[in-house]
Write a protein that binds this DNA or RNA. Sequence first.
DNA 1: CATGTGCCTG
DNA 2: CAGGCACATG
Length: 916
Amino acid sequence: MSSEEEADSHAPYSDKLLRKQKRARQRVDAGEPRNSYSTLATNGIAPARAALMSGGLYSAIFEGRQHFGLFGPGYAPAEMLNELLGRTTKQDDNGDEANGGVIAHRVLRDILQSRNKELLLSSDNNNVLANNNNDEPKTEKRSPERPCSHDSRPDLDNALLSLENPGNSHASPPPAPPSSENLIAPKPEPEDRDSDAQRSSPRPLDVKRARVENIVSTMRSSPAPQQPQVNGCKKRKLYHPQQHDGAAERYGTSHSSSTHTVSDDSEDDGERPPIQQKLVEKNALKSQLRTLQEQLAEMHEKYVQLCNRVGKESETVDNDGASSDVEQIEESIPKSEPASPAKELPPPLTNTATPKMFSQVMNQMMTAKMHAQAVGHPHLQPGFNGTLPMMPHLPPTDHMHPPHPQIHLNSAAAMYLNVSQKLFLEQEARIKEAAEQQQNNQQIRPQSNQHSPQQRQLGPTPKPPLSSELAERLDALRVNTGSVGPISGADLEGLADVLKNEITASLATLIDSIVTRFVHQRRVLGKQSEAASAAADKLNKDLMRAARLIDRKSPTPKPPERQMPGMFQTPPKPFGPLYGPMNGQFERELNPEQSEAISLVVPSRKKRHKVTDTRITPRTVSRILGEGVRQSPESKFPESPSPRPYTGLPTAVAIPNPSLHESQVFSPYSPFFGAGGGLARSPPAAPERESPPLPHAPVLHHSELLMSAHHSSPDYLRQHARMHASALHQSQMMMDGQDPHSDCNSTDLPYDGVQPTSSTLTPMHLRKAKLMFFWVRYPSSAVLKMYFPDIKFNKNNTAQLVKWFSNFREFYYIQMEKYARQAISEGLKAAEDLHVAGDSELYRVLNLHYNRNNHIEVPSNFRYVVEQTLREFFRAIQGGKDAEQSWKKSIYKVISRLDDPVPEYFKSPNFLEQLE
DNA sequence: CATGTGCCTG
DNA sequence: CAGGCACATG
């Protein structure tokens, strides 16, 4: 019928069977359409999930992930997409950037003024989006219709839509059926969405969308001076460098007045008398602090307003506000962003230069702050987790304590926190710098001169005053410094305390209000809101799928999926901390087994390159595991929001678009109930919404992984960086050694300039592939290639890699079937009662197989997938379907839809090394 | 024909 | 895991 499946199953099937008989094989699926799984999945689910999302706005925005594919069935008219795309591309190509830039500018401004919050939120998304735009074209060829990124737009659309009519979101799109249903649903999936058909109304929405896009891109570019390097660095670069520049310039100019003093100081340092400088600085700082504070308040206010408006607002989006406001906002928000890709600004050296002392203090402060917040707003904490890891100079150990995973983070709050945090950090950095500067000036003027100018440029933003107290503190400090000399630790500490208090206080208020708002909003949104967070999770996946969908046109449009009430609702997943056991170990054992693996392969046709990882025999492993897995306290929180780089299209589309990643700080993770070992039964009463856990980035045990990830994945870095103080940001950049201004290179180097060096897949690659299996069960070869940038692919090794995954799947399904049967034999009646605990046998086996050395924490989604798979098998077996020849086929299909994007850090050249 | 996928077997 | 085969799709 609608799906290809049907096609084969019917007519062809008979033939097939006949043939099969020859071999006596019951081919469940031999020859399934290549990507049939993914395709189907994509189409069907995406819409549903999208719908699920509450209004999309919140989820989309808050989640910060990029959901490209998400077109509600009803929206995202092809035209719109085309328009957008066309615009984007063309402009880029033509060099119309200027126009775009201008527009973007305006939009940006508007947005900033009217809705800071949105901006913030969207900025994340934007990043992703922008990235997409940048790279995709090539890979995307698949979809003739629209070669370019279909991606980002949809999100925007949704967001816009939601904004316009919050309540409608579900209306237009098909009702969002619970994911589980989709899964189960035989297949009547409707998928017309990508066929453009429906969308043909160029409404204000489009305009808005366009605007938003521009804004976003602008924002994005600005904040992330780091070039938008897309791993594949496809063709396009950011197109707003100019805008950015313009903005920066503007910004600089306008600021100059305010910041003037400071800048002058820095520049003229040498000549000016220290005292004068001090005074000037002091004043400047004071005013800046104040400004900052005000901004915070302002932002909050705006946020609130925004929240209120969200429902109705359709036009508000654009308001041209005073440039001044914009500037302020800019300052506060993208603080480090000033550096535009354009490169007019010199690379930021500023913060980096700061002595360790400062950083330490900052760290301290941050930590304290976090704790305080955590106490006050437990649910918010998660947001920080994501961010923390990102701080380069912070010692991983101290700062990374993930807050309790269970805490549900309010996304809105999180966003705010991030912003606040950023501001805070920035401010701190500035203050410190200033202090330091003074010190230096007094002692050695030349030094200060050197970096101050740059500072200025980079962060022209005046430092707003935090509070009078703070200002006083600073002043005192300064005075002391001036007269006494070096700043004492005590002083700094005091300052830190003050700052902490200040910020904490303001943040607390802010957060509270935000949370309240958010909650309220959700309520308003209605049912969708129900599981905004949960929905968000799904959304991600859906989006991904949708994206895929877009790439390939669906053979036959399928009718929209309908909810099948109650059909197979699965209980909320009890995953959670359960993971603990698995994650815990960080130690990565070094087992250099590679010895011979690298031997050159002689091109003899059938030679097998065995890459098998022999290092540990399964038995050994099991033994070890049996002995108990130790987990480090820190790793207990699987959900730690370490942002997970999100790749838009997991499988089908080979788009090396690193941008996706949205860090998702919010983990709408629902509370986890630890299930006992093995298959546990959950109380029937369990809330029924089944929301797949968000695809969170698993927490890597080694900070190095993260770091490496950063190196390799600019996007990833960017995203995180965005949330941190510019200082951090900059320092990171420096660490990376990347030129912030450099755009994506025209070269298509996979990543970071990593070039394929060998065509031989080593045991390490195998290991990596296994780890990847946690995210993707059905990766396309294109995706695989993307994730193995160091491999020079040819047919053989590509096939080998593909084969690996085939083998992985085989193993996986065998286990699933086995455990499903076991559950049945144990008398389990309801599939919903099947749960996979972190300590279950099944889980252990799987972990052993794919993650022997616990190199990474198993992503929560994998657990979800496992559970779903298990349930599918369970149901099938229970229903006697296993008697049918291809009974597994349907299961495979379901599972194939559950692929998630593989974290960007897998592309990192360093990743392999980490796996030793 | 190239690719992709599954099933079996070694 | 890898080989091979059968089968599917573009």
